[in-house]
Nucleic acid binder design. Structure first.
Lengths: 212, 212
DNA sequence: TTTTTTCTGTTGCAATTGCAACAATTTTAC
DNA sequence: GTAAAATTGTTGCAATTGCAACAGAAAAAA
């Protein structure tokens, strides 16, 4: 039943089930657009997305929203990774979701009790967090680009590299892409037109092709 | 001799020494402005700053540099947290540094061998990485501000909150601050003047005071 | 199916920003 | 202590960007 997601890599199913029980894990279901409330006052709880997709989003006081991170099956999130005092960060289901929560402190404790499975889960956990850090660095790299054009090109090149193809389908709506790049939507549309006019890209129905 | 930095929290000195030996740790010294080469081909090595300060920096192809992260005694860095294929990220000593390197894989292995100390170090490690993630989120929040004015105010407010005081000394030169905010320096200087003219801040010799 | 909502595409205009260039000052290096 | 390098402070100007405001298309809801 339980699949071998990244977070469960190298763990036997029966060991996993036993460990999840020990860690007092609980599973919850969320509908699309529902806010996943993963913190119930006590901290150091880790959410594992067993099924579905969710976004880590920030809502500014002035109503602006920004997608901080897109997550899918096998990803994790935690209030450990989220500032206590900064502006509102929420994890919001973008499709129906199944989420398992585990107690971080229990996981550490298990590592000290000669449990062979717990360190593997911890290893996977660290690798996933590290990966998040890498992604944030890349996001910062994107955001430090000084013009909309540079941001768009960087984004397109990154997507292109990821798929190892000059063509790819935009996974965002233009509205969301503008949010992601943190620029004005209309200015971004204008710049996309410029890129097309300059024959640097084509954009047919959200299928972008890099022409250089 | 070894102090109880964050990464060594809750670990007895003799246990720590034993663990560091087991983990095949090595210590190196770096002079100010020297690049700390922490990856020697093999990956999954973690650097612990025992003494001094260092910056994680990115150098763009076009010569622009950005400070990604400032680190000081007790901080950690690793190629695990740095993308393999993105642009050049380097850790550069900003004062003379003493750095201890440990093998991550050895640390995980030790957790599986009934070693009581290793899981504590791992716990501290995770907490430090999580903290980095939180900082990156805050950096992203800063960078998503749409104007130089908003970036400056956000930065000033953050520094102010950190010290719990309306006044604080800028720890950056204006040149570096512009890099950090990822804006043009002269435009930033102009905006600082505007903020002063609008009586939102005073700026006496890099001592900023928020007036609202 | 029809209505409502969201998204796309566009434009004029004003404000902001980056760029270039320079002098003055401060800091660092020799 | 002097020379060299880096930082600060400033400005005009051109380019970029955000904002506001639409109309049409597409998607979602009723």
């Amino acid at each position: 039943m339980l699949e071998k997601y990244r977070i469960y890599e190298n763990i036997e199913e029966k060991d996993l089930k036993k460990l999840l029980t020990t860690l007092q894990s609980s599973t919850h279901f969320y509908k699309t657009d529902q806010t996943i409330i993963y913190s119930l006052g006590n901290r150091d709880i880790i959410g594992i997305i067993e099924q579905g997709t969710a976004n880590l989003m920030r809502f500014d006081f002035d109503g602006k929203r920004t997608i901080i991170e897109e997550m899918s099956t096998g990803d994790i999130f935690s209030d450990m990774f989220i500032s206590t005092n900064s502006s509102e960060l929420s994890v919001i289901a973008t499709t129906d979701c199944k989420v398992t929560f585990i107690e971080y402190n229990e996981l550490i404790r298990e590592c000290q009790t000669n449990n062979k499975t717990a360190p593997i889960l911890l290893d996977n956990l660290i690798k996933l967090i590290s990966e998040k850090l890498v992604k944030r660095n890349q996001r910062i790299e994107l955001l430090t680009k000084r013009s909309i054009r540079a941001k768009l090109l960087h984004y397109f090149e990154t997507e292109s590299k990821k798929l190892n193809s000059k063509s790819f389908n935009l996974k965002y709506s233009y509205t969301d892409l503008a949010d992601y790049l943190s620029v004005d939507r209309s200015a971004m549309m204008r710049e996309i037109k410029n890129l097309k006019d300059d024959k640097l890209i084509t954009d047919v129905n959200k299928k972008i092709t890099i022409l250089y």
